[in-house]
Amino acid sequence: MIIPIRCFSCGKPIAHLWESYVERVNKGEDRKKVMDELGLQRYCCRSVFLGHVDLIDTAAQFKKF
């Protein structure tokens, strides 16, 4: 839906890194390099970024119950 504020496992705040991550990956940079430079060291935080799909734009068009 939307990037979690913190890493699920270790609790490190990660949400503020998401937009620069997306921007750089879309420019064609290597994901590994971007994550290393953003300071995502552990595989728990990295998996949140690799596995995340931003669906909020699609979901926002539907009615909330």
């Binding site: 504020i5 705040p13 949400a15 503020h16 909020i56 734009d57 926002a60």
Partner: peptide
């Protein structure tokens, strides 16, 4: 997160660019 206005200037969100939610037009 930077849009959260705190009554005490010393206590505010550490990371200003944290997205809280995304709004569409009219929301």
């Amino acid at each position: 997160a930077s849009e959260l206005k705190s009554k005490d200037p010393a206590v505010k969100p550490v990371f200003a660019e944290m997205p809280i939610v995304k709004l569409l037009k009219g929301q």
